[in-house]
Design a protein around this nucleic acid. Sequence first.
DNA 1: AGACAATAATTGCACTCGCATGTACTTGCA
DNA 2: TGCAAGTACATGCGAGTGCAATTATTGTCT
Lengths: 157, 157
Amino acid sequence: MTAADTASIGLAHGWYALSLLHGRIESHLERALQSGHDLSAREYSLLDVLSHQHSGEGGHLRMNQVADAVVLSQSATTRLVTRLEDRGLLSRYLCATDRRGIYTDVTPAGLALLAEARPTHDAALREALDQASADPRLAPFVATVETVDAAGEFGQP
Amino acid sequence: MTAADTASIGLAHGWYALSLLHGRIESHLERALQSGHDLSAREYSLLDVLSHQHSGEGGHLRMNQVADAVVLSQSATTRLVTRLEDRGLLSRYLCATDRRGIYTDVTPAGLALLAEARPTHDAALREALDQASADPRLAPFVATVETVDAAGEFGQP
DNA sequence: AGACAATAATTGCACTCGCATGTACTTGCA
DNA sequence: TGCAAGTACATGCGAGTGCAATTATTGTCT
């Protein structure tokens, strides 16, 4: 077995653990948000992302960038936004300078729901991490999640 | 703002980064495996998991445990196994002592396809990690993936 | 100005997923 | 033994997703 093979195996194990942890956390969040606030994990994530953009002045992310932020295809993002708009949590409006672009704002109702759901989300996240830290395969990643903090803000690759 | 709030924000950021990295890697793997070997990322993952169980003697994981390993519901696992069985990559057989239980073996064809796809998978993973390491938000997790190696074997929580 | 390529978002379609339910088998207890 | 409760997998169904094709708008080149 070559050194490269050994490295690949290590990488695959690491990826497997990351994947496992992601799945566990997402399931946990999904349950909590769904039963408590009729929100899927992605819907919460979308509201969170949109509410953070230029706080106070309104949103300035195009659908394209939003799709990238929530790691979803453009089509799925279109429909996700449509669903939330139909529920009155978001509003769409065209970009003034380029009428192809579309911006989205979180409505007051959306902000209210987000504020209401945030404690649920954070508690569920804390819980999922605590459970995961018992698994030795997952513990290193849990530690990394806990280490990273608000210091590292945005910055596209 | 209390200390607890600060911690929650840090946690959410960490989770967001983990989620982002997971999505990026999965998309990358999906593309590579799909176009190269007609396999989804999860199908590859399933073959990989099943081929690793007690190598040589055949598989001994029940559907239930398999579902847990690939982080999928029981129903989705049933259909995933069915798809791969229909393609001749897996075979099902009943557990002798408890005829409710069902075991799965990877067929020679399945092992062959897995062996063929593994380099693609590993290369795509390496590539995705390299791309991700350029993003400061993702870099710590990339480092964790690279740090963990085969040392930490199984162990249920 | 007019035509053609490029970009942003939406829609059609097939596929996978989770939840709730159904079926087969086993275990516990009278 | 016989019947209820529990466990393991499979199936019906509605919902969400990605890919490919479509529509609307902008930029560029002659």
